[in-house]
Amino acid sequence: MELIINVNDIEYKLDVNPRMRLLDVLRENLGLTGAKEGCGEGECGACTIIMDGLAINSCMVLAHQARGKKIITVEALEQDGEMDRLQEAFINNGAVQCGYCTPGMLMSCKALLMNNPNPTDEEIKIAIEGNLCRCTGYIKIVRAVKEAIQNQ
């Protein structure tokens, strides 16, 4: 079934089985493997992308439901060779260890800052409450987001 989908400002015309999730299409049809599958039930957030300005688990939405929406994935955070300030802050604060949760974590944080440029610590934690990380204990991640806010 034909699907026209806009990902990272590029429009793709694809043939996609209606049962495929957005995550499957991003990873397998478009080769955008930044979003990961960690649980397949919307609990871990490793597959988080931004859809129409909001953080969404791409494992919890069918690909065809994303027609006409504007999808942003981690691959588009870097613009013209320049990293997003969140990416810089993640690097500077040691917020990355194994890196498997990182793309989803970044997209949750990016969505937060797009909608709320000056969040409190509490709001940061709630923004990533659906993003699990086993390496960092979240501490350096929260610290990184705070630094990114200051560097706006």
């Binding site: 039930e41 919307g42 919890m60 069918l62 065809h64 027609r67």
Partner: peptide, 27 residues
Amino acid sequence: LISGGTDLIIKLREKKIYSGTIIDLKG
């Protein structure tokens, strides 16, 4: 029927549903 998808997508997998008709209400 699917809207947000957060329940149905899990159900499709758990109940091994491979055929039928999905009607997307989100549009």
